[in-house]
Design a protein around this nucleic acid. Structure first.
Length: 604
RNA sequence: GCCGCUUUAGCUCAGUUGGUUAGAGCAACUGUUUUGUAAACAGUAGGUCCUCGGUUCGAAUCCGAGAAGCGGCUCCA
C-alpha cells in the first residue's frame, strides 16, 4: 500500500468516525477531520455533552456497522453559496465558517487568511465557484478528498483518545472535542503499532526516573519543580560539564549572574511585554523595586558586556553560564522533566562583529554535532523563522539577513534540516536541534539563535577601526537546551542504559561471600586510580560494592535493574586466579586484576 | 489555563451491588542461610484508601469542590 492509499484510508475513517458520532448524537457539530501521523482525528462539538473513552466502544461499533454496510464514497460539487446554505440548514456553523473563507479567499488554511476576517461571511465576489462534497450513506461532508472507493476499504483502526482542542487552534475560540484514531492497512500492522506504544511506555523517562532513582517531584515543593537525587545529579553535572568543555575549546568564558533582577531589565530587553505574565515576581520588603526570578539569561549577559568599553579587537566576546531559570508555566503544560518551572540552561552568548557571525555559528554547530554524535543521537534540525504574526521585534531586512545566514550555516555544516515559519524567538530566527521522545513527540534541545534586536535595545557597542561606535550581533546558544528536557529525551533514547562515561553508577562489585574482603580492597585500590579523560576530562570512576548477605543471583538482578553497565563478580575462585569476572550487556569475560584499569579506560 | 481520564502501603497492583478488622508481591526490619550468574527461607512491621465537604445506620466505593499526575489543545524567551 502506498502513502496516498493509506492517506485516503485514514481520511475516509475520519468521515466514518463523524458519521458514527452523528448517528449517536444527531445534534453534533463538526469542525475538521484531517489525517495525522499514524491515523486521523475529527473535531466535534456536542455542546454540553462530552465524549469520554467510555463511549469509544459504542462509537466503534457504529463505525464497524457503517464499514460493513459498504457504501461508496460519492463525490459531488455544489455552488459555493448553495454550500453555505447547506451548512446553515444542517446547523453546521463551523463548516459555514470554512465555506465563508473558501468563498472569500479560496482557502481554509488559517495562516493564509486575514485573521480579522477568519470565518466571516462576505458579500463580495466569490474566490471560487464550486466546492466539493463527499457522501457515504446518509453522511455528507464538505471535503477536498480524496477518499477510498467504498467504506469497506479502510483497513484496521482503533479510537485511541479524546482531547480538547480549540476551534482553529485559537485559545479564545470554543473548545471542541478531538477524537483521535489510529489506522493501518492491516490488523497486523495496527497490532504492531499498539505493541510499539506499549514498549515505548517502558522507556518513559518518568517511569525510568523513578526506577533508576534519578529525580523526584514532591507535592510539598510543587509541580514542575523536580528534585534531583545523587544519581540524577551525576547525569546533569557531567552533561553540563561536557557541554561547557566543548565551547570552552572555542574561547567561551564562564560567567555568573544572580537569579533575580529588577523588572526594568526585561522591559528593556522586550521580554516583559511578551512574557510578563509568566514571570515569578519577587517583592522586596526594603525597597520599592520590583524583582523577578530570571526566566532566561541573555539580558544579564548583555550587562556584563556593557560593563566596559569594547574594541573591535576584543570581539567576539563569549560568555558561558549553566544556570537555572524560573518560568511560571501553566499547570496544564507541565510534564515530567520535559516541561518544568525550574529549568537549567547551558546557556551561552557571543557578542560579535558582523564579519564574525559565520565562524561563530560554525563553531557552535560543530560543538552541537560533536555532543550528539558522542551520545549516539542523530537529530533533525529545524530552521525556525518568523511568520506574519505580531510580536516580532526588529527590522524586516535584518530578519531576512539573519534567516539567510542561519540557513547557509546549516547547509555548510551538512545538517539534515527543515524550515518552519512562526517558530522564531521574538528577537530573531533560530537553528533548533529536535530530539524525539519515546512516543514520537519532538522536543527542542540544542539551539543557536541570531539576535540583532537586544544589542540595540540595550545600546551595546564596540569601537571599530575608525573610532566609530558599532552595534554588535548576539548569538545565543545552548547545546543541551534545558538540561531537564535534555535528560527526558536522553533517558528515553537510551532506555536508561547510559553510556559508560556518564552512567551514575558505572560499576558495582558483587561479592559471592564474605571470605574475600581483602581481595575486594585490592580491587578498590585499582578502581580508585581509574580516571576517564574522554569525552569529559578528569571523570573519576563511580562504583559501589554490594557485599550484602544475599545470593549472587539477587545481586545481579538488582544491579541489572539499575542498568549498571559494568558488574564485577568476585568470589574465592577469582581471588585465587587474581582476576575478576566482568559482566556487561555484551556478556561476561575474565579480566586480570592487573589489566582491569586498562580495561575500564578502554570502554567507550 | 481549557477538555477528557486517573489517584489504595516506599514501589507495582487487587479490592464484587455501599456492609465486620482494606489485601498481595517486591522493598524495609529481625532471625536463619555463606551463597558462582536476573531475586534463598521464615517472621515482623508498614494505610489520612489524594484532600476537604456532603448523602447514608454505614463510604476506598455514591455526590460536590479542590489538589496532583497522564493524554491532548493553547503557550514555550
Amino acid at each position: 500500500m502506498n502513502d496516498e492509499q493509506l492517506h485516503a484510508m485514514r481520511h475516509s475513517l475520519a468521515h466514518i468516525t463523524a458519521a458514527a458520532v452523528k448517528r449517536i448524537w444527531p445534534e453534533a457539530k463538526f469542525g475538521v477531520g484531517p489525517v495525522v501521523q499514524d491515523g486521523f482525528y475529527y473535531d466535534i462539538d456536542l455542546g454540553e455533552k462530552k465524549i469520554s473513552e467510555a463511549n469509544f466502544e459504542k462509537i466503534e461499533k457504529q463505525m464497524r456497522g457503517i464499514i460493513e454496510y459498504g457504501d461508496d464514497f460519492e463525490r459531488f460539487e455544489m455552488p459555493i453559496d448553495q454550500a453555505i446554505d447547506w451548512a446553515k440548514e444542517n446547523n453546521q456553523p463551523y463548516k459555514e465558517e470554512l465555506l465563508n473563507d473558501l468563498k472569500r479567499s479560496g482557502t481554509t488554511v488559517a495562516k493564509d487568511l486575514d485573521t480579522a476576517e477568519l470565518g466571516l461571511a462576505t458579500d463580495g465576489d466569490a474566490a471560487i465557484e464550486n466546492v466539493s462534497f463527499y457522501k457515504n450513506g446518509a453522511f455528507v461532508d464538505l471535503c477536498r478528498g480524496p477518499h477510498v472507493a467504498n467504506t469497506r476499504d479502510v483497513g484496521a483502526f482503533k479510537l485511541l483518545r479524546v482531547a480538547g482542542a480549540y476551534w482553529r487552534g485559537k485559545e479564545g475560540n470554543p473548545q471542541m472535542q478531538r477524537l483521535y484514531g489510529v489506522a493501518f492497512a492491516t490488523q497486523e500492522e495496527l497490532d504492531q503499532y499498539l505493541e510499539r506504544l506499549e514498549q515505548a511506555k517502558l522507556r518513559d523517562h518518568r517511569k525510568l526516573g523513578k526506577e533508576l532513582d534519578l529525580y523526584t517531584i514532591s507535592s510539598l515543593v510543587g509541580p514542575g519543580l523536580p528534585l534531583f537525587t545523587p544519581r540524577g545529579t551525576v547525569l546533569r553535572e557531567l552533561m553540563a560539564q561536557y557541554s561547557n568543555q566543548l565551547r570552552q575549546a572555542f574561547g567561551f568564558q564562564k560567567v555568573w549572574t544572580p537569579h533575580i533582577t529588577k523588572k526594568e531589565l526585561y522591559e528593556t530587553s522586550g521580554h516583559w511585554a511578551k512574557f510578563g505574565d509568566e514571570l515569578f515576581l519577587v517583592t522586596s520588603q526594603e525597597t520599592s523595586d520590583n524583582f523577578a526570578l530570571k526566566p532566561m539569561n541573555c539580558p544579564h549577559h548583555t550587562q556584563i558586556y556593557a560593563s566596559q568599553p569594547r574594541s573591535y579587537k576584543d570581539m567576539p566576546v563569549r560568555f558561558l553560564e549553566t544556570t537555572t531559570d524560573y518560568r511560571d508555566e501553566k499547570t496544564g503544560e507541565l510534564g515530567g522533566l520535559n516541561r518544568v518551572r525550574s529549568l537549567t540552561q547551558d546557556d551561552s552568548h557571543v557578542f560579535a562583529r558582523p564579519d564574525q557571525i559565520e565562524q561563530e555559528i560554525n563553531n557552535l554547530l560543530s560543538s552541537a554535532r560533536e555532543l550528539y554524535a558522542t551520545i549516539g543521537m542523530s537529530l533533525r534540525v529545524r530552521l525556525s523563522y518568523r511568520d506574519e504574526g505580531e510580536g516580532y521585534l526588529g527590522e524586516t531586512n535584518l530578519w531576512e539577513t539573519a534567516q539567510a545566514q542561519l540557513k547557509q550555516a546549516v547547509i555548510t555544516n551538512e545538517l539534515d534540516y527543515f524550515e518552519q515559519d512562526g517558530e522564531a524567538a521574538f528577537y530573531g530566527p533560530k537553528i533548533d536541534f529536535m530530539a524525539t521522545d519515546a512516543i514520537g513527540r519532538e522536543h527542542q534541545v540544542a539551539t543557536v539563535q541570531l539576535d540583532f534586536v537586544q544589542p540595540s535595545r540595550f545600546g551595546l557597542t564596540y569601537t571599530d577601526n575608525e573610532g566609530n561606535a558599532q552595534t554588535p550581533v548576539m548569538i545565543h546558544c545552548a547545546l543541551l537546551g534545558s538540561i531537564e528536557r535534555f535528560l527526558s529525551v536522553f533517558i528515553e533514547h537510551t532506555g536508561g542504559w547510559f553510556p559508560f562515561w556518564v552512567a551514575p553508577e558505572q560499576l558495582r562489585i558483587l561479592t559471592i561471600n564474605d571470605t574475600i574482603g581483602d581481595y575486594v580492597d585490592e580491587i578498590r585500590a585499582v578502581l580508585d586510580e581509574v580516571v576517564l579523560m574522554k569525552p569529559v576530562k578528569y571523570n573519576e570512576l563511580r562504583y559501589t560494592v554490594d557485599d550484602r548477605n544475599e545470593s549472587l543471583g539477587k545481586k545481579i538482578g538488582q544491579a541489572s535493574l539499575m542498568k549498571i553497565p559494568v558488574q564485577l563478580i568476585v568470589g574465592p575462585k577469582d581471588k585465587e586466579a587474581r582476576e575478576v569476572s566482568v559482566r556487561t550487556q555484551a556478556g561476561e569475560e575474565k579480566v586480570s586484576l592487573n589489566g582491569l584499569g586498562e580495561y575500564l579506560r578502554g570502554i567507550s
